[in-house]
Design a protein around this nucleic acid. Structure first.
Length: 601
RNA sequence: GGGGGUGUAGCUCAAUUGGUUAGAGCGCUGCCCUGUCACGGCAGAGGUUGCUGGUUCGAGUCCCGUCACUCCCGCCA
């Protein structure tokens, strides 16, 4: 490197005119006008125009400048000068000045790049497969660098805030013991112990509870977690959570801590003031009104119950559902009577994929109710629909009938999809700086697995029941509420947690009597926890926030891959490094592992 | 494991009902151009239409299979 850079590429203004400076960075674009050549030099902060004037430069340097491809790395020395009148570029912050180059060093001559990154619109459309393969190019785009900056800022803010609140940041092991109750785990074979395996943690749950027993009192960690499950736009095999646990607290302490933390993060990263305290919705209300336990409350289209009204309806699909103990529910997609046949088909398919048999609808057009089912409705039923749904010209009414949970979830999915379509048509507008935070509370502690014919924890088995419900644990588990809470923003589950069980007897009851884990399994998997609880365990509770999801929300992107530097594809591969890959037979021998995979033809 | 979408030039896309030599913009190469900033102008190169098999006189287009990416369901205590 011949010169040391003196300024970054978004630093020079009229104040530096006349100074000799050195800029280093990438060739963002080259504009060769036959005589004078302009090269915009870009770094992570921005870009600055440099000028190569043939009348003042050695021929060799001028020719080098004219031969540079985009994304070559150069260092230029020259004088800052005011741009000539009428040539300012107000699109960039350095646009009133330019560097008159006297010397240049080419630090790395770039080949022709596989896709253009200087035009933001074109670059954003490049297929994700290419972006992931050439991730270093994709990350050079200002949009991606901005995401990484927001992520870094949010992490720093979290650490500062948690430290102010006297939390200790403590690392827990990533080589953990297999606890096969929950998500599938990644296993790590042990070389030293033939036939034995570590597991990567799905979360530091058990360690953080043990830290409470250890008297840490307030713990947090930016924890890496690993789950070997199928992926989604908001799920990666490895991800980060802000993991928190506290002693001698109740649910209110968690609510106010997290509200303050999120308030601070939103302020520091986006300079937005989010109102606190957050709205609280019971699990039941969230499902009844929004059809989801992570409701998006930025738009209405609430679900309305018609179980009573259709109890004895002529329309057997509805009355039959009620007879079986089910419900009839509907929502009004305001102004969506213009729905096309194709869109209606999409919505129906969605409903079916969520477990519906079909999707009943009414289009309100030209003063008529257009619908294959409305002929079965009595005048009273129609009046009830009109009143409770506020039906007007141009509306689209959609129905679900059947089991309560499934009917709610079907309409919840329809509600989200309909809002998406209405937004794309400009009929529904949601400001992009609107963030509707809320707590979902009063979850049922347990859910029933029909296939396995047993109860399982709807959160995890360490969640404490609401005290007044404890007596129902064994005889009436359905009625037991858990001290569990989720924090939700704009339809995204940001995180969740609970007050934990700190009494060994109660924990043992939950494991053995309620979840019906055998004594041996409990001993094998959880004996150290039950033992720890016997030697002085404070009441405690905590929460974990999905850091990647939170950053995605802050950055306004739907995919967490856009806020992770090196994410995996939907099938868990890394397209840049080609992981996972086969290993040497020798490595397998050392690990006492034999593979059993059919050879590909 | 199941369902939907995508795959055509380096990139983004087009190609009527199955019908001539598969086109465009950007990028690339060459030439021209001294105030551009997504510079401009002229010319040119660039294709195993993801892969495999089939139907057909004829396949980018239709069918079977397969691969990759993606969205959703299952799954994610």
């Amino acid at each position: 490197m011949k010169f040391k850079r003196s300024h970054h590429c978004n630093e020079l203004r009229e104040g530096q005119i006349g100074e000799e400076v050195v800029l280093s960075g990438w060739v963002h674009s080259r504009r060769d006008l036959g005589g004078v050549i302009f090269i915009d030099v870009r770094d992570r902060k921005g870009r600055t125009q440099t000028v190569f004037d043939p009348s003042d430069l050695p021929k060799e340097l001028y020719e080098t400048a004219s031969s540079l491809h985009s994304e070559s790395v150069i260092s230029v020395k020259g004088k800052v000068r005011r741009r000539p009148d009428g040539t300012d570029n107000l699109k960039i912050e350095t646009g009133r000045v330019e560097i008159v180059v006297v010397e240049m060093e080419v630090l790395n001559r770039a080949d022709v790049i596989p896709f253009q990154i200087d035009d933001p619109e074109a670059a954003a459309k490049v297929h994700e497969e290419h972006r992931l393969k050439y991730r270093y190019l994709d990350l050079r785009r200002p949009e991606m660098l901005r995401n990484l900056q927001i992520r870094s800022k949010a992490a720093t803010t979290t650490r500062v805030f948690m430290s102010e609140q006297e939390f200790l940041e403590i690392e827990t092991p990533t080589l953990f013991k297999s606890t096969p109750e929950g998500a599938r785990e990644f296993l790590v074979p042990s070389r030293i112990h033939p036939g034995k395996f570590y597991a990567l943690p799905q979360s530091p749950q058990q360690y953080k509870q043990i830290l409470m027993v250890a008297g840490v009192d307030k713990y947090f960690q930016m924890a890496r977690c690993y789950r070997d499950e199928d992926l989604r736009a908001d799920r990666q095999p490895e991800f980060t959570q802000i993991d928190i646990e506290m002693s001698f607290i109740d649910r209110e302490d968690i609510y106010s801590l997290i509200e303050s933390l999120l308030k601070r993060i939103w302020k520091e990263t986006r300079n937005l003031d989010i109102p606190t305290p957050f709205l609280r919705l019971s699990y039941e209300e969230a499902l009844n009104r929004y059809g989801s336990d992570k409701p998006d409350t930025r738009f209405d289209m609430e679900i309305v119950d018609f179980t009573e009204e259709f109890k004895t309806s002529q329309f057997k699909v509805f009355s039959g559902a009620v007879k079986k103990g089910g419900v009839v529910k509907a929502l009004n997609a305001k102004g969506f009577a213009c729905v096309t046949q194709g869109q209606l088909e999409t919505l129906t398919k969605l409903a079916i994929s969520c477990g519906a048999k079909g999707l009943a609808f009414i289009k309100v057009e030209d003063g008529n109710w257009k619908s294959p089912i409305v002929k079965f409705f009595s005048d009273e039923e129609k009046a009830a629909l009109t009143e409770k749904l506020g039906i007007e010209e141009g509306d689209l009414i959609l129905f679900a009938a059947g089991e309560w949970l499934s009917s709610c979830e079907i309409l919840g999915a329809i509600r989200n999809k309909a809002s998406e379509i209405l937004q794309s048509q400009g009929k529904l507008t949601i400001p992009n700086d609107q963030f509707n935070f809320l707590w979902v509370i009063e979850f049922p502690l347990l859910a029933f697995d029909k296939e396995m014919n047993r109860w399982y924890s709807s959160h995890h088995p360490f969640t404490a029941p609401v005290e007044e419900d404890v007596h129902n644990l064994i005889d009436n588990p359905k009625e037991v509420r858990g001290q569990h809470y989720d924090v939700v923003v704009n339809g995204v589950e940001l995180g969740g947690g609970s007050i934990r069980i700190h009494q060994p007897d109660l924990q043992r009851t939950v494991f053995e009597k309620v979840l019906q884990l055998s004594e041996e399994i409990v001993k094998e998997r959880f004996s150290y926890m039950l033992e720890a609880f016997r030697y002085g365990c404070p009441p405690h509770g905590g929460i974990a926030l999905g850091f990647d999801r939170m950053i995605a929300v802050l950055c306004g992107t739907g995919s967490i891959r856009d806020v992770i530097a090196f994410p995996k594809t939907a099938k868990g591969t890394d397209l840049m490094t080609d992981a996972p890959a086969e290993v040497e037979p020798r490595q397998l021998r050392d690990l006492h592992v034999q593979v059993n995979v059919a050879d590909k033809e």
